[in-house]
Design a protein around this nucleic acid. Structure first.
Lengths: 324, 324
DNA sequence: AACGTATATTTAACCGATTAACTTATATAT
DNA sequence: ATATATAAGTTAATCGGTTAAATATACGTT
């Protein structure tokens, strides 16, 4: 800036005023404005956002903490978040928590030290204290995909209860009565269990042995034994809902290697829409999340908080049921 | 810092010296060091990385430009990059280029303005001027996954030629003679074509009608017509190599919907390892990239350049051939 | 001529760190 | 007793911007 100022023959601050678009409000003459802009372009000036951020207290950066960016769902979510943020001239710093609360805490500090203007986080199991910590920092904060009950913060999620009951109801209407569910033991996904349970109970066909819990730490093993049990003759299921695409892939994969024939006997259903569906050659019912809208909304809410809104917004999107 | 200094009763810079770990070299007494550290902890001090970055000229941040973070391969790549960077206390700013050179240029400026210490980029078609622009900025820069011939910069890639010829050779040994390839028309992936062509020619079985080019802008349509042509009776292929997992998914999906029976007639092969393989129920040969190593290596090279090395490192990893 | 009022630009403080150069006090050597 | 070295900190400049307040110039009025 000093160089530009020298070249044009004005003070450094005149350059700043012009270049930060405050020429009109501070009545810099049009001639000088042009000259400064031209000279800046000529000299390939690009502003140092660090200095600007230091002075203004705004970095135009948002921090995103996801469990695992290599997960297809989060990858797509981050894609939409990044695009929306970009549209508003915000950058995105990504960090992976690997579902570990301690890592999340470290990453929050890292983001805060970098003076991000706000944080978007996918909360995980046992991260209540982490979320509350962010709230106590009183930095703009929005949860996405999941939310922690009792945390005083905004969130954007899928209406899991509704999606799950719609899905279960659909299977019921198609004649299924012994509908099983393979689920993760996460409070964040409880809605997917509850929607299912309610519909099953409404129709008087709920049976607790149809629900199998999978632990994160022993996913593959748990899925195998869950499948083994569910496919026993006496359980006689006619539909199987996987609570996430990870479980779906693990499940189908095992069913295949175990040589179990299910195609014409058992309807399969799952949550999320993934690339792998291109390879599905059996009837599949799935819940599709409006992931683009979710990503955009979470950015919009965060930005409104960054702009000063104290409103806590909790937005719930409906999923749609599709079939292959 | 001033607050800590006041509380302890020393100057601001003593605090800085201690907190940035320069206590020994500047001979701050051990007692004072302890007191400052304790007071800082007590007061929940966290450094402002912006200010630090402004002063030191180092932001401990690297910018990553990928074509599409929601792409499974790039998602995983970014995952490894982020983890490795994190291990060295570096943060990662992600941007999506959507394979658009103009977008890349914008993002580079954005990253440069934010004073990133270095840039990792997946170059795309027609981005030669973009890469050269980064080089002209003389900022540490490494290309990954693909590279642009003629650009004077480091890169980390898969040995596509080797992988492709290994793959082709393997199919040949398994008795295939009419091996087809569905490929993207990108110079970045030329190695995958050339390795194939060489092996085919070596065995005297190369036939140009076995190679189908797919345009990025009309992927789905092109794949459909490519498949249609390849599966004509008179072409009589016995193996089909897809040059990327995107093409593989599109291809298999179309083959399925078209009701073409290939399972026991035609061997399928592809590049990359993706989640969808969990659903594969036919023999599949694929090239697996050491993606974790690639991610780590690209960070290591970038960091060595950031640390001052002027060496241009061009690292080529071998892929491994696997079967399902 | 004196004054008020826009207009156009500059001054100087500030954001929160880092660090080269300097000061002061004490210890050790000659 | 004097010179030298070492220890333990402090001073002040700096990074590259922003912005409230001050200043200077021109213009229109009475």
């Amino acid at each position: 800036m000093q160089d530009i100022a020298d070249r044009v023959g004005v003070s450094r601050c005149a350059v700043s005023l012009v270049l930060s678009g405050k020429a009109k409000s501070t009545r810099i003459s049009e001639g000088l404005r042009r000259k400064i802009i031209d000279t800046a372009a000529e000299m390939n000036y690009t502003p140092n956002e660090l200095a600007r951020g230091l002075r203004t207290g705004q970095t135009k950066t948002i921090g995103v903490i996801v469990a695992d960016i290599s997960n297809e769902f989060f990858g797509e979510l981050v894609y939409h978040i990044q695009r929306r943020a970009m549209a508003y001239d915000y950058s995105v710093i990504i960090t992976n928590s690997n579902e570990d609360p301690d890592a999340m805490l470290r990453e929050i500090h890292l983001l805060v030290n970098r003076q991000v203007d706000g944080i978007i986080m996918v909360p995980t199991n046992n991260s209540l204290h982490v979320a509350n910590h962010i709230v106590s920092l009183s930095i703009p904060f929005v949860q996405v995909d999941r939310f922690l009950p009792g945390v005083d913060a905004s969130y954007v999620i899928l209406d899991n209860f509704d999606a799950s009951s719609q899905l279960t109801e659909k299977l019921y209407r198609q004649g299924c009565r012994r509908i099983a569910m393979v689920r993760h033991e996460t409070s964040a996904l409880n809605g997917r269990l509850e929607g299912y349970v309610q519909v099953m109970e409404e129709h008087g066909i709920y049976d607790s042995c149809l629900v199998k819990n999978i632990d994160y730490s022993s996913e593959a093993d748990d899925v195998r034994s869950a499948i083994d049990e569910l496919f026993k003759e006496e359980v006689s299921i006619d539909a199987l809902i996987f609570q996430s695409h990870e479980l779906f892939l693990l499940g189908i994969s095992y069913i295949r290697t175990a040589g179990i024939d299910f195609k014409n006997r058992i309807k399969i259903a799952t949550f999320d829409k993934i690339e792998a569906f291109a390879l599905v050659d059996f009837p599949l019912t799935y819940v599709e999340q409006p992931i683009g809208e979710i990503g955009r909304e979470v950015v919009d809410i965060l930005l409104s908080q960054i702009k000063g809104s104290n409103e806590i917004t909790q937005k719930v999107f409906k999923g749609s049921i599709n079939e292959i």
